[in-house]
């Protein structure tokens, strides 16, 4: 019991929460950029999985961290461009196309893993690399702050910086403005000369890039191997975080942290006889209530 209390209220818990949040946060930022252009990207799950897989395989075969990261990002963007091509050019329903890509990623990674290593469960036999943690000089020596702020995975810092970058990008740059215009009202955007399809295409590619970082974090930082279906629904959770936070990067980040910290807490709370199933489903229930509330408020304002 005391251990559990310490587990929740220690500074390590905050560090753990940040670690669990990282992949959700990156994918949620991806969901945000796509949603801003009015094209929901529900292939995040598949994109993350493919990038996680590619990173491990490429680093295992080339022993080059640089190539692994490039390949992982490239595969994520390729998945996103497949989604964009089918949805925007071939007029496939974007939800169905994304579901197809998720199926492809889930089974395809297992298939290729088994073809390459003979093992279907994990890439344990591949000698893959990990992306290192970063200790921030000076801060790492400050007692509490050091534990929380320093020593995280490189991608975690990238993710935190990306919250600000994405917010700036969407609200302060011409391309971001175009993306939001297309998402807000494609006809109006079209009438002022913005190419709707091109803009949506770009938004989906950026979304794929962000999700691929989340995937790389999973297999090259969070753990040091690839396991089948290792994304375990984080792509869907990211969508929930985005829905919770609206079209604002800070709101979305808050949503991602809510999910990440609930997950981290649910393990410790088991010691209090609070079943982890209940704590795990809580953020989803909260999301549904919040979405219902948003919809109700919107309905009320439009009726007036």
């Amino acid at each position: 019991m005391n251990d559990a209390l310490r587990g929740i209220f220690s500074w390590d818990f905050i560090a753990a929460g940040i670690r669990v949040t990282t992949p959700i946060l990156l994918a949620a930022l991806g969901a945000l950029v796509a949603e801003s252009a009015g094209t929901p990207n529900i292939a995040l799950e598949g994109i993350m999985l493919m990038s996680a897989f590619t990173g491990v395989v490429v680093s295992g075969f080339t022993q080059s961290l640089f190539l692994a990261i490039i390949a992982g990002i490239a595969v994520g963007i390729a998945m996103a461009s497949a989604l964009a091509y089918f949805a925007l050019k071939l007029k496939t329903d974007i939800i169905l196309a994304a579901i197809a890509l998720n199926i492809f990623a889930s089974g395809g990674t297992i298939f290729f893993l088994s073809m390459l290593t003979g093992d279907k469960g994990s890439s344990a036999s591949v000698n893959s690399l990990i992306i290192p943690n970063i200790d921030i000089p000076i801060i790492e020596n400050i007692p509490v702050l050091g534990d929380i702020v320093s020593g995280h995975h490189a991608i975690t810092y990238v993710a935190i910086i990306l919250i600000f970058v994405v917010q700036y990008f969407l609200y302060k740059t011409p391309l971001g403005l175009r993306i939001r215009a297309v998402g807000e009202n494609p006809h109006a955007a079209d009438s002022v000369g913005i190419s709707v399809i091109k803009t949506k295409f770009i938004a989906l590619l950026i979304s794929g890039f962000l999700a691929s970082l989340g995937g790389l974090f999973l297999s090259m930082g969070y753990v040091s191997w690839f396991a089948r279906d290792m994304t375990a629904g984080r792509g869907w959770i990211a969508l929930a975080a985005q829905a919770l936070g609206g079209l604002n990067a800070f709101g979305v980040a808050a949503g991602a942290f809510l999910f990440g910290f609930t997950e981290a807490a649910s393990y410790s709370l088991q010691f209090f006889n609070i079943p982890y199933e209940l704590t795990q489903s809580l953020p989803f229930a909260i999301t549904i209530i919040v979405l219902g509330f948003y919809a109700w408020r919107k309905l009320k304002t439009t009726k007036k």
Partner: peptide
């Protein structure tokens, strides 16, 4: 051959069947 290859086929089928412009 790992049976998961079937997922790849499923994905291709869904994509092509639902692609209106195909």
């Amino acid at each position: 051959i790992a049976p998961e290859i079937v997922s790849i086929l499923q994905a291709v089928i869904i994509l092509l069947v639902t692609a209106e412009a195909f």
